[in-house]
Nucleic acid binder design. Sequence first.
DNA 1: AGTTAGCACTCAAACCAAAAGAGTGCTAAC
DNA 2: GTTAGCACTCTTTTGGTTTGAGTGCTAACT
Lengths: 338, 338
Amino acid sequence: MLSERKKKILCAVVDGYIERANPISSKEIMQTALPDCSSATIRNELSALESMGYLHQPHVSAGRVPSQKAFRIYVDELMNYERLSDEETNLIVKYLTHQVDSVEEMVERVAKVLSEITHLPALVMKEDNLDIITSIKLLDLDNGKALVVIVTDCRILKDSFVDLPEHFTSNMLKSAQDWLNKIFVGKHISDFLNYDFPFELVNEQFGDFNKFFKRIVDTLKRESLTHSLHLSTVGENKIFEHVEYKDSQKAKQFLDTVEQKELICDLLFCDQEGTTVKIDKEDSVLEGCSVVKSNVVLGENISGSIGVIGPVRMNYRRVVAVVDKISKILNYVINNKR
Amino acid sequence: MLSERKKKILCAVVDGYIERANPISSKEIMQTALPDCSSATIRNELSALESMGYLHQPHVSAGRVPSQKAFRIYVDELMNYERLSDEETNLIVKYLTHQVDSVEEMVERVAKVLSEITHLPALVMKEDNLDIITSIKLLDLDNGKALVVIVTDCRILKDSFVDLPEHFTSNMLKSAQDWLNKIFVGKHISDFLNYDFPFELVNEQFGDFNKFFKRIVDTLKRESLTHSLHLSTVGENKIFEHVEYKDSQKAKQFLDTVEQKELICDLLFCDQEGTTVKIDKEDSVLEGCSVVKSNVVLGENISGSIGVIGPVRMNYRRVVAVVDKISKILNYVINNKR
DNA sequence: AGTTAGCACTCAAACCAAAAGAGTGCTAAC
DNA sequence: GTTAGCACTCTTTTGGTTTGAGTGCTAACT
């Protein structure tokens, strides 16, 4: 357990480092946080904090730099949370309550506002697995093809084409549609994946059109697989505003990481309530990065996460406040719209 | 008009500069391109080429660097075109003839292969304006909403939702569909934009459901507007492989430029046959960038462009060969599939 | 025992001057 | 017209010195 003074000093180091990105000296801490102590006293404390693993020195005559462990305790215990100003909150509300037509558009808007306010790349993940199928439509396109439309409870559609077999009448298409609906309505999209195709049943009812049905189910399977998690990232270029990416190789590494959708999804995927902060290699190979995220309930069966990603040295006070606020507004907006 | 020797020297400068990204000296040219001349002779020629605007020196004791004008003449007259190896061509063919289900997937594949082979960000633009409407479907979703589907001749669909008015029966939806088809089938998507809505006609046939029709047409208008040009960019991070973007501010500037879709579309949009090269500020505010592009015919009424964007100092011999080859393969693949 | 003034010490960064090296332009001879 | 030769320029490298920030330690003080 840290003494109050150690906490104060550690907090000052992290605050200072977040603001100015250079090592923090004992003198600086004295001036900003502990005017009643001498720099020598602070040096002793710093030395102690260093041997506890919270700080390190780039070289002997430099100030102290917080370690990953320091950021962790800073986020969890030390920092005081920022409250967004009313103007800012109102601006966000206004932006997010604007009439939108689709989930995609909403995602777009959320990501945009997150990224703009935090000056960091924004991540918005939507989990479609939990979508419940409302109905399946087979639409005759009059050119030997049919359009397969899946309607789900969160207005998301998965559509694709399928060639109709020869001698397949409009009526047969209708019964095929009814058949599919009977089986799948009320189920989750993800149920397609584990669905064993009942060849015999089809044979019985539709003669030899097994291949056609198989194709439809395969299409749906593929769709559900590729769309089960949808991640959008917006504002990647914002990282260039931060000094840790002045070297373009660092920037490249960061951008490459962000492009690994599965990795980012893993990071965003966690059940924890409220806004959480993941720092550096606690969770993955995100060297030098942190993620601030919050879950959002998009409906009874749909969930998602929103968040931002950036250097470990980010302004957590502000970023956590923003992510938290936006997720709350989002929950509010969505639930009041239904 | 340049003498043969001047051409040879200029070509050597550009080749060398493309390869090594540093100023080229007279001695170097002597060794690589003109072993029969002395370096002094070459120096005289270089001096002449400089005063003609093809070259410049970073400082007095440095070699020569080609100007934008030099790159222009290099691409147009000096360089010898590379022929892709058969293995490489086969690889591309194999990759592009792989079974795909949608235009989007094809675009994805083309962009991917372009970007991987050239080590540059790839641009693929598809012009939907020329799509001809094959049919319009209004699909009752049983929850007070209808799905609007537009089928066009290039298999592209534009779909969106519209709320049904109260007391709107299934039969009325059917007649509404017939009515829309009568008006719009055979026309271009872009025709929606200029379409004046005939309130009286609707009133006559459908009573007071003007609002409903207006909403449908508005939706279609918006869709056709936002989707009229579709640009996808893939492999933006490839620019980090090039020294001109070692400074991350340069990289940022580049990435910001590439994100300006309209600007890139303008660049890609030109009728010229074959593969064309646009260099730096000839065409726009693309500071330090070049675009190599080629038009692709995707069908009778659909056109698109593929290309790459990168630093002016790019390997034109190879890049032009690749873009040219891929566009030809693409034309072949598409036309043989129909 | 905790705090602090004082001081020696370390090390990065800034500065400066000299040397090396690359490449040119010019001149005079071929 | 071509070229050898040379003086000249300017960047890059090298190495040494200075500066300054910041520490750790010690000894004195509360």
